[in-house]
Design a protein around this nucleic acid. Structure first.
Length: 102
DNA sequence: AACCTGACTTCGG
DNA sequence: TCCGAAGCCAGGT
């Protein structure tokens, strides 16, 4: 499979524990730069079926985009369990936790 | 077949 | 520095 969906799913599955990646980054690595919104859609449609580490995908500012009550707390909790520290304002230190597939 | 939506990103005023 | 608008693409209705 070389579809956009499969590429994104595969990319997300490769995000290591304790690291995070932005939507745009995931799209770019998957081979579709600028397709951040489609990544959102993939998470919505395949996060459970494909058993994806959806919580490791955040926005480019190092913050969780979900609204409180819609998974925000759960995502933060899951990341903290993996060792990701949050700022007092709920921001992740990208210098330290941003995934670089190097 | 056309229109709408989505956990985004980036640029311009 | 902050806000608004446009652009990305696939899937659902």
């Amino acid at each position: 499979m070389t579809s956009f969906t499969q590429s994104v799913i595969d990319t997300i599955k490769h995000i290591p524990q304790g690291k995070v990646a932005s939507y745009g980054q995931v799209a770019a690595i998957a081979g579709f730069p600028g397709a951040a919104r489609q990544v959102v859609w993939v998470l919505h449609t395949s996060s459970e079926k494909e058993d994806l580490p959806w919580h490791r995908v955040i926005n480019a500012q190092g913050k969780i985009s979900l609204k409180p009550g819609s998974g925000h707390e759960q995502q933060k909790s899951l990341l903290e369990q993996e060792g990701v520290r949050f700022d007092a304002s709920g921001t992740i230190d990208l210098d330290q936790y941003l995934w670089s597939p190097g």
